[in-house]
Design a protein around this nucleic acid. Structure first.
Length: 586
RNA sequence: GGGGUGGUAGUUCAGCCUGGCUUAGAACGCUGGCCUGUCAAGCCAGAGGUCGCGGGUUCAAAUCCCGUCCACCCCGCCA
């Protein structure tokens, strides 16, 4: 059995005989003396082979990168002047007495040393080699530590960790489900959970009171840097709570987690921002507050404008919004054009723009505006000179969202995020309960249909549903939606009313949510909760752009596991057993 | 479904725009040799390529054009 990690040896071991196991990280064969950097997950230590013992030395000459070896030797201080300050164990070395080669290693498909970047594709195919790299190991270690902190936090606060089913019922509202055919009930399917939403609510009805779970969730949608088909959530739910209580528990949990990583307590409570404000100022419901570049609504300036493009937008009750690139950034015409086509690739019509320089506006559209309009613009935007103004005109939310994307891209390209270790948390609150879906031609839930409407607006639920706010809240960090939750509906009649507003047929309600409605009828307590996207959080904490970097075996953009080759075709026999294929008639 | 970037020794890349100066290079890695204090060891020698795949243009294609596959980023989608 392994006694010590190579990377943990220091001067206190000097003089001791020791047995080490590890991988050959690098070898430096000087002919008369051979140095091996022996590595395990905690680091490297230099082991030395001297020529006196001829058979030992000959064996050592055969060592190559990533051979797995066992060495027995004694620890000594390195001779004066040969210490290596770059590594933790650099003051000592191990003089080897015995060597056992436990396994050899094929020629590596890529260099494991930290000095070269290797394509992600290759790293994932040979993920086990990638995981030997210190940077990858450290992420997995941190992830493990944070899970442990999370569990401690909840247990300490009286929560029970309860597992909910992985084989469960499809709820085709929302994301696409992964389906699993049932062999015992041919023609029927389980769904893998998109979240344990209904089960955790039912646990509340079961009187559990405080539940949490570190849980894998599944969504069959297109992948992104921050989206994998399976991902991990820190999910929790509490009974007899208000929105404030759930937010406070979340803040305390994040405090523990961030203190562990950064050594500093983050400030709580976090900033709260209305959904409407986030959209209007930042063009997104997950604004990054590490930089300014706020969107400004300038519609009022152009109410009487003669510029046809703006005129028709205003007549159609749209709004005109701008984002100002402050002085001090050189911006070519080509760059401006790039932004215009960027907006077009995001589904917009483009951007109007102006340069403000030496008290004058310059651009192809300046001539359409009156002196008054331009002066008001100058005043409203507090222009001092050498700014560039991007205009987006259209339906208010769409126009802001496009500028939101512009804002994000500007921040990246202008390098506005200077401190990598800055964490700007905020809560987004007062989401609308419903929104109108053009695609489905009806109102749909913004959050999910179990979200409690704002108590004060219950009277207009049926008359003006689109004006009703919800008791939902999202936790946002540095432009990333870390998680979200809500107070849930615990009243059967209210839940039924919501379903009917969503135009879900009573048959569908019964089939899909009947068990929840039953539960609500049997003394369901008021309750609410939240779920945190664990992968996203770890990605932020480790400075990674993609959650693939913090998942042990992630999938590619097409949902393929480069290591195992999943998904793959299955035996005909399996399909026949599942009733998905019939035996050939002979 | 749409827009974009990339694909050249084992690896990371250069060459491509402007076709022929190429027998397609470099570095690292690999193999062999030398070397007793290195630590991304050094020195010498060597092996290693269907330029993602398929078609086209051309006297001539890694280089230009079309299609396709894979990876990545973004939009749609993700209650």
């Amino acid at each position: 059995m392994k006694q010590f990690y190579c990377g943990q040896l220091d001067k206190t071991f000097v003089g001791r005989e020791i047995t080490l196991f590890g991988w050959v990280h690098s070898r430096r064969d000087h002919g008369g003396v051979i140095f091996i950097d022996l590595r395990d997950r905690e680091g490297i230590v230099q082991v030395v082979f001297q020529p006196e013992d001829k058979s030992l030395f000959e064996k050592a000459e055969k060592l190559r990168n990533e051979f797995v070896i066992k060495v027995v030797g004694y620890v000594r201080e390195r001779p004066l002047g040969t210490e290596n300050k770059k590594i933790y164990t650099g003051e000592i070395e191990v003089i080897v007495k015995e060597l056992e080669i436990l396994n050899s290693c094929s020629i590596l498909p890529f260099d494991i040393s930290e000095y070269t970047d290797v394509s992600e594709e290759l790293r994932l195919k040979y993920r086990y080699l990638d995981i030997r790299r210190d940077a990858v190991y450290k992420v997995l270690k941190l992830r493990s530590d944070l899970l442990s902190i999370t569990r401690n936090f909840f247990v300490k606060n009286g929560f029970l960790e309860i597992e909910t089913p992985m084989l469960t019922k499809s709820t085709p509202e929302g994301a696409r489900d992964f389906l699993v055919p049932s062999r015992l009930n041919k023609g029927t399917f389980y769904a893998l959970p998109q979240s344990p939403q209904l089960f955790k609510q039912i646990l509340m009805v079961g009187g559990i009171d405080k539940y949490f779970q570190v849980v894998r969730c599944f969504r069959d949608e297109d992948l992104r840097a921050d989206r994998q088909p399976e991902f991990t959530q820190i999910d929790f739910e509490m009974s007899f709570v208000e929105q404030q209580d759930v937010m406070s528990i979340t803040e305390n949990l994040l405090c523990d987690i961030f203190e562990y990583v950064t050594g500093k307590r983050i400030e709580i409570p976090f900033l709260r921002m209305d959904y409407e404000e986030a959209i209007s100022k930042y063009g997104t419901d997950k604004p990054d507050l590490r930089y300014g570049l706020e969107i400004v609504n300038v519609t009022s300036i152009f109410l009487d404008t003669q510029f046809k493009v703006f005129r028709s937008i205003i007549d159609n009750k749209g709004s005109i919004n701008v984002i100002v690139i402050p002085e001090g950034y050189i911006f070519s015409r080509q760059q401006i054009d790039d932004y215009i086509s960027f907006v077009q690739s995001c589904g917009g019509n483009g951007l109007a723009w102006m340069k403000y320089k030496e008290n004058k506006f310059e651009s192809n559209i300046v001539k359409f505006f009156s002196e008054l309009e331009l002066n008001s613009l100058k005043e409203k935007l507090k222009l001092v000179g050498n700014e560039i103004i991007f205009f987006s005109a259209g339906e208010h939310r769409k126009s802001c969202e496009l500028l939101g994307l512009v804002r994000q891209r500007l921040a990246k390209e202008l390098g506005l995020i200077k401190d990598k270790n800055e964490y700007k948390f905020l809560w987004i609150i007062n989401f609308p309960l419903f929104e109108y879906s053009d695609e489905e031609k009806k109102i749909v839930s913004v959050h999910h249909p179990f979200t409690m409407p704002n108590y004060k607006q219950l009277d207009i639920l049926e008359t003006k549903p689109l004006e009703v706010k919800s008791c939902a809240y999202d936790i946002v960090l540095n432009g990333v939606e870390l998680g979200g939750g809500s107070i849930r509906i615990h009243d059967l009649q209210l839940q039924k009313k919501i379903f009917s507003l969503l135009k879900i047929s009573s048959e569908d309600i019964e089939n899909r949510f009947g068990f929840l409605l039953d539960a609500l009828s049997f003394g369901a307590p008021p309750h609410g909760g939240l779920a945190i996207g664990f992968d996203r959080m770890v990605a932020i904490l480790t400075g990674n752009e993609s959650i693939r970097d913090v998942i042990s075996f992630p999938k590619t953009q097409k949902g393929i596991c480069m290591l195992s080759g999943a998904p793959s075709e299955v035996d005909k026999k399996q399909l026949i057993e599942l009733g998905l294929m019939f035996k050939d008639k002979k």
